[in-house]
């Protein structure tokens, strides 16, 4: 999903030849029908979740402790655990991903064997199913490194998962920095470090932020990778070594394992969808101002 390239330059306005034959009308009907189907399904899903979830949503729901396995009460501790897991994930993956992206796009050429190998392995990493990350996180972080079922293991597992996405968007942001800037920095005999922190990073910032926000969205939506790493415990966590239940796991548990949990599952799904819509809006804003900067750059 590439938020940055919003150039929907439709060829609609293009004048085509005669649209008489039957096959032409059938094709138009099928294409528009497919589009209508997809749009209807999306609206059905979103309205259904919000319609059934909003009546159960209140401030108390957001801060209360769940009771009776989540049938009653709220999602306070679950929101806290979710935020902690996301925090761990971002604190680890952001510097690592940014560093890797900087190395790949600024300090090595694309054709060296090492950069090609790194890219290959990142491509494969991006395709690894989330349940496989769950297995890996359980074997590596929980058992091999002895972290047990904890927010830390969950966050680290998610960090591995969002890394390829972060690197790719950061690279895209860095590629949009005009080469004149680098040449200018070199002409002023700036050290790489100063050029990086004072010129390249600031101008690539919006692109990097888009990546960060997309990574956040991917991490908050994740369930399968967290089941065997951060666990199910729905108390307020005392530390990062405590097990904590993420919002998505709460929805899964309420709808599958708790009879009569559907109302709270709807309300939690509403919260999750609302969070994701916010994240998406933020990403779009960044992408938008980045796009505007670029076009302003081009016109001067």
């Amino acid at each position: 999903m590439n938020v940055a390239s919003n150039s929907t330059e439709s060829i609609y306005s293009q004048t085509f030849g005669s649209e008489e034959p039957m096959s032409e009308r059938v094709a138009s009907l099928l294409v528009c029908g497919a589009a209508a189907c997809v749009a209807m399904t999306f609206l059905w899903l979103v309205f259904d979740v919000f319609w059934s979830g909003l009546p159960f949503l209140s401030f108390d729901f957001l801060v209360d402790v769940p009771s009776s396995a989540g049938r009653r009460g709220g999602i306070g501790p679950i929101l806290v655990s979710t935020l902690l897991i996301l925090g761990v994930c971002m604190v680890v993956s952001l510097p690592l991903g940014l560093g890797a992206a900087l190395f790949l796009s600024e300090y090595t050429s694309e054709n060296t064997t090492s950069s090609r190998l790194v890219r290959y392995s990142l491509d494969i990493l991006a395709g690894v199913p989330s349940i496989v990350f769950g297995l890996f996180g359980n074997a590596f972080f929980c058992i091999y490194l002895g972290m047990g079922f904890s927010i830390l293991s969950g966050g680290l597992t998610l960090a591995c998962m969002v890394l390829p996405l972060l690197i790719r968007s950061a690279e895209e942001g860095l590629r949009s920095v005009p080469d004149e800037y680098r040449a200018g920095a070199a002409a002023l005999a700036l050290s790489h470090t100063r050029a990086l922190f004072q010129i390249i990073l600031p101008s690539a910032l919006p692109g990097i932020m888009v990546g960060l926000v997309l990574g956040l969205g991917r991490a908050i939506a994740e369930t399968a990778a967290l089941i065997f790493t951060s666990g199910y415990v729905d108390r307020f966590p005392d530390s990062l070594m405590d097990s904590g239940r993420a919002l998505s796991i709460h929805i899964y548990d309420l709808s599958m394992n708790v009879p009569g949990g559907n109302n709270n599952a709807y309300a939690s799904a509403t919260v999750l969808l609302a969070l994701l819509l916010c994240i998406n809006a933020v990403a779009n804003t960044f992408a938008h101002c980045w796009h505007r900067n670029l076009t302003a750059e081009a016109s001067t």
């Binding site: 999903m1 999306f42 979740v49 369930t223 929805i251 709808s255 799904a269 999750l272 998406n280």
Partner: peptide, 16 residues
């Protein structure tokens, strides 16, 4: 719409 659909979590799809 398509971009938003792409961002909906799988657990929400499953629940729905």
């Amino acid at each position: 719409i398509i971009e938003l659909l792409a961002g909906i979590p799988s657990v929400v799809f499953g629940f729905w």
